[in-house]
Design a protein around this nucleic acid. Structure first.
Lengths: 152, 152
DNA sequence: GTGATTGCAAAGCGTTTGCACCGTA
DNA sequence: TACGGTGCAAACGCTTTGCAATCAC
């Protein structure tokens, strides 16, 4: 089967597996372990980090399967790539529709936030520039409570 | 000399060359031609694009010199990397202190914008999350006036 | 003249592809 | 049982490094 439907999926690990299955993919051990690693991480992970962490539970995992699973999870909207001054190779669980991330510069802990109200800004920029604005990315960088307490 | 000072430089091509010189770098033909390519481009360019465009003026340019010049220009704050859903390998002239970009999804034309007022949002997110917010990136994607007129 | 800078070639590194074997459905 | 998925090895593309020749100062 090759009709990978883009049905909206929740963010719990079981929902991810259900979503993979519903999309016509088989639930194999490599996929399960990669999903678990990503779903339980508080920060974005790159392919090698996912590989190393997942191998603790499933030592025969291949790096290639990590890449192939990431590709599918991204297509299904279960993970998204995180852009960062130091690189753009890492992925985080969850997808809110737009890119509203809050990233700790200390430990990497990453959260989504909601409720920006930027419409006025967009309108002003649109008028001044002549652009039709379609999408936006807003990312905040800082220190999470653990990290700024530690640095005091 | 190895004291590459990070003095603020303007965005005109001559200012860039002055800035390179003031920072202890020699003004060579490869550097001049890469600077000109970047300074006159309306959109972000990756290393290969810069290489190809610059070679039209200086055919013996090597790709390695493009990479080495990009490294220096980035350190001096004369260019910055542009993050994009399709990749993060391209560079644009100018640096405003934070990342406020407006990018055309049609032709790639890229502009900076100013005057966001996100302090209230930051404060709210900080309170809700416990993060100390240090930096932010805001990028808008859309269609520039040329591209949305063309698509009508 | 001298030492920074160059272009070439080779190395490095992250990611993708080809393929025979394996395991889920 | 069929065929989607796997791990390995090799290929790939982009970027960096080593080096002798070159050129800006």
């Amino acid at each position: 089967m090759n009709t990978k439907t883009l049905s909206p999926c929740s963010e719990s690990e079981q929902d991810w597996l259900d979503c993979l299955k519903a999309s016509g993919y088989r639930l194999t051990k490599p996929r399960r372990v990669v999903v678990e690693t990503l779903a339980t991480s508080q920060r974005a992970l790159n392919a090698t980090e996912i590989f190393d962490l997942s191998r603790e539970q499933y030592p025969s995992l291949g790096l290639v399967s990590v890449y192939r699973t990431l590709e599918k999870l991204e297509q299904l909207g279960l993970i998204q790539r995180v852009h960062h001054p130091d690189g753009c190779q890492s992925f985080i669980a969850g997808f809110t529709g737009h890119q509203h991330l809050l990233i700790c510069q200390g430990c990497g802990k990453t959260e989504f936030f909601e409720g920006d109200d930027l419409d006025l800004l967009f309108e002003r920029v649109a008028q001044q520039s002549g652009y039709q604005i379609k999408e936006h990315w807003l990312q905040l960088f800082g220190l999470c409570s653990n990290c700024h307490l530690a640095s005091d």
